[in-house]
């Protein structure tokens, strides 16, 4: 049981480590966002908020973003496994679907965590400072929750997709809105009701808010309620993912 999960996890880490271009390429986007938004909107934010530093606000959002993307993509990798035939090899083995799913989710979550930590280091270069070890520890908890949630979500989606054709759909109508309406880039106050509503049902909102509470001491809902919400959602998405994956045929 544990070994099957481990070998699934290891395989994914090897894939990640070996594609250096992907590793470096995926750092480009968060960096671009930090530079463009950080320096572009920074002065405006400072003026509007009466002296607050935008980088403190933005950095937890960008770290969340990089975790979101990495996690959901690694879940979607199952579609590639299907297209290249490797999924069959795993599905006819005398192991349970739950083992396969748990290994994959943990692998995706680990990679997303590593990616998030690298981005967190990059924010240091742009002037963001984590207040202390306690905040860092709490921040890591939220990073892990975001990673597990979206890795599980990616896998759940992948078990319903036959090929990469629906990828654009998922990208534009799920991943991008999840990111933009989560409050990663701007405060979720004084928004039109529709946008307000969407942002409240967006799981990443609670991840970003929790991260911000942990790393920068700014939180709308409170860290505990963020944690409870995200934890519940993660458990839920993993259960749904396990169910959907158990129905997958090779």
């Amino acid at each position: 049981m544990i070994e099957v999960i481990y070998i699934r996890w290891l395989r994914q880490l090897k894939h990640y480590w070996r594609s250096k271009s992907r590793l470096i390429g995926s750092l480009g986007q968060p960096l671009l966002f930090m530079v463009a938004f950080g320096f572009g909107f920074g002065p405006m934010y400072t003026k509007a908020s009466g002296g607050a530093n935008y980088m403190d606000f933005l950095a937890p959002g960008i770290v969340s973003m990089s975790i979101l993307f990495t996690a959901i993509f690694s879940g979607l990798e199952v579609i590639w496994d299907r297209q290249f035939g490797f999924l069959k090899e795993t599905l006819v083995a005398p192991i349970s679907r739950t083992e396969i799913m748990v290994g994959k989710t943990l692998g995706g979550a680990t990679i997303a965590m590593i990616q998030g930590l690298i981005v967190l280091c990059l924010t240091y270069l742009l002037g963001f400072r984590v207040p202390g070890l306690e905040s860092l520890a709490l921040g890591l908890v939220f990073m892990l929750l975001i990673a597990i949630f979206f890795s599980g979500l990616g896998l759940a989606i992948a078990s319903k997709m036959k090929d990469m054709q629906g990828f654009q759909l998922i990208m534009n109508f799920l991943i991008m809105p999840t990111f933009f309406l989560s409050g990663a880039l701007f405060p979720l106050e004084n928004l039109p009701p529709a946008i307000y509503f969407i942002s409240r049902i967006d799981p990443l909102t609670y991840g970003v808010d929790g991260m911000r509470g942990a790393l920068a001491g700014m939180s709308v809902f409170g860290v505990y309620s963020d944690f409870a919400t995200l934890f519940t959602l993660s458990v839920l998405v993993c259960l749904i993912g396990a169910f959907l994956f158990s129905k997958v045929e090779a």
């Binding site: 395989r11 894939h15 594609s19 290249f84 035939g85 490797f86 069959k88």
Partner: peptide
């Protein structure tokens, strides 16, 4: 041995 390939090409043969 399936009709279509089912190997992980990003791993070594031993892996």
């Amino acid at each position: 041995v399936f009709q279509d390939p089912s190997l992980d090409e990003e791993l070594t043969a031993y892996e």
